[in-house]
């Protein structure tokens, strides 16, 4: 009985400590997500919502809009380009930093730098660097590679790859730190004994480094997929605005345009529901993959 009371008191006490965070998170996330679903079901007149049920009007509209699925597909193109490049490059970088190639300390410091430059600043700088008269094209001209002289962000065929490059360039900073922390668990003797057996560096990378990173790579693939689906607004807003044409229009940006520029708020929130649901599926996969023991929780 006494024990029971103590437990209860403790729960109460703990929730006292938890309350500020819970109030903020419930207000910003919980309550707004409920409203999001509700907004997708009622009729809208411009920016003003009514309390009248729309009979799934916006859900029907959603499936007739080509742009929704085209822009979702574009996100997956970006994922298909960025993920393999970042993962292979990161494994290569961290293997060689961990194996202490000459200058590894400098490289470790330098490769992290792009991660701390504001993303908007990066997007704008790379627009200048890849401009038709910018430094990259000047160098290409000097090397007599005229056929490669392209307005990378301004050409509808290359814009999406220019965008991918900016994401990769920034992301390598983060992924290197994360993967290096995971590598720290490998005893260096493992490499030494493999080298006595005559293995070269490529084989060490393939048979020691890569298997040790497999857990983090799995988690990284899921988080990066979530990130690319949901967090490209600032890069696109500061660089291409979804253009040229619709070449870099991703779902997230299309929601912004629909809700705030085309004044179709009802449809905008409905597309947002779609994006939210896709993301939640990925989050559940992530949480399942990340908890080692079932009962442990995340913290």
């Amino acid at each position: 009985m006494k024990d029971e009371i103590r437990k209860k008191n403790n729960t109460l006490n703990a929730y006292l400590f938890l309350s500020p965070a819970l109030i903020v998170l419930l207000f910003i996330f919980g309550y707004q997500i409920v409203r999001l679903f509700w907004f997708s079901l009622v009729k809208w007149e411009g920016y003003i919502y009514t309390t009248e049920f729309s009979n799934f009007l916006y859900y029907k509209q959603l499936f007739t809009k080509d742009m929704v699925f085209k822009s979702l597909f574009r996100s997956f193109i970006i994922i298909a380009v960025v993920l393999p490049v970042v993962i292979f490059a990161t494994v290569f970088i961290v293997h060689n930093i961990y194996r202490k190639v000459s200058g590894w300390k400098f490289y470790r410091w330098l490769f992290f730098l792009p991660a701390i430059i504001p993303i908007v600043v990066q997007a704008i700088i790379w627009q200048y660097l890849l401009n038709i008269n910018g430094p990259l094209n000047t160098i290409l001209k000097a090397l007599r590679l005229e056929f490669l002289v392209i307005d990378w962000f301004g050409n509808s065929k290359t814009a999406i790859f220019a965008l991918c490059w900016v994401i990769i360039w920034r992301e390598l900073g983060f992924s290197t730190v994360i993967f290096l922390a995971e590598l720290a668990h490998i005893p260096p003797s493992l490499y030494e004994s493999a080298m006595i057996d005559g293995a070269n560096e490529w084989r060490l990378m393939r048979h020691i480094t890569l298997p040790h990173l497999s857990r983090i790579i799995k988690l990284y693939i899921i988080t990066m997929t979530i990130f690319i689906l949901n967090n490209l607004f600032s890069i696109i807003f500061a660089s291409t605005n979804g253009g040229p044409g619709y070449a870099t229009m991703v779902l997230e940006y299309y929601i912004y345009l629909t809700a705030f520029r085309y004044t179709k708020t009802g449809l905008g929130t409905t597309i947002a529901v779609l994006l939210f649901l896709i993301t939640m599926v990925l989050v559940i996969i992530y949480l399942r993959a990340s908890s080692k023991k079932k009962l442990e929780g995340v913290f």
Binding site: I28, L36, T265, L287
Partner: peptide
């Protein structure tokens, strides 16, 4: 501290990290 609902709460808090910001913008 020990309290009820710890595990569920930790999952809910972590999942807010990944919620699409664009989904929040209109209602917010």
């Amino acid at each position: 501290l020990r309290f009820r609902g710890k595990r569920l709460l930790s999952y809910l808090i972590v999942s807010t990290m990944y919620i699409s910001p664009m989904a929040l913008v209109v209602p917010l």
